[in-house]
Design a protein around this nucleic acid. Sequence first.
DNA 1: TTGACATATTCCCATATTGGAATATGATTC
DNA 2: GAATCATATTCCAATATGGGAATATGTCAA
Lengths: 108, 108
Amino acid sequence: MSRAATSSDAFNAVAEPHRRAILDFLATEERPVGEVVKALRLAQPSVSKHLRVLREVDLVRARRDGRRMLYRTNAGAIKPLYEWAGTFERFWAHQLRRIKERAETKRT
Amino acid sequence: MSRAATSSDAFNAVAEPHRRAILDFLATEERPVGEVVKALRLAQPSVSKHLRVLREVDLVRARRDGRRMLYRTNAGAIKPLYEWAGTFERFWAHQLRRIKERAETKRT
DNA sequence: TTGACATATTCCCATATTGGAATATGATTC
DNA sequence: GAATCATATTCCAATATGGGAATATGTCAA
């Protein structure tokens, strides 16, 4: 084994800037692939591939609509990420406090 | 150009599970590399490499203490991630509401 | 200075990843 | 069924990544 087992999880999926853009774009309403292509100015296969990655970790969901596929962001799948990051909130709050205190001390 | 320019940002850095573990471990207090090695049971060079990546995006900070280097998580650098994820909060809230409403409807 | 300890870097390998081009699949309409 | 539209998949090339082993660098102690 030469690399960590492909942890295809939400963290991995959102590491790619284009994929974050896609999630943003599909957050408000479902849209066909073609619109993502136009909006993000990416090649169609590229978009399909990103959507596949996102779908595999349930960050987007899809349904067929005639010849089109409608995708939308499944915001719930972003929550774990939000929660992980949130566990650090108290630390950055402390940091701010410390900085403030240091400023006070200097001024005094 | 065959790959997206190495977007070495916080999103990328935290995509790696070991690096998230390191951030968790270094969140409460600064510690030398050796302790990270022991705690996470990784090889020392591996840890040094991960720390380098984390340091390059300011997710950890380091200072020398004699022969040791003391690292600690810079929680503030996680904030952008938290905020990006947070922009989806209202969507997952809506989803929950929708699900609840659907349940109500069925029951009625 | 030498030796020991702590950490960082380099080299190599295997695998993963992204984009582009070409092609395949699915669904609709005629 | 044939043509067409929309999307997905495959193949390829270039590059990135992580682990392991070996080695380099930096710091302290004697």
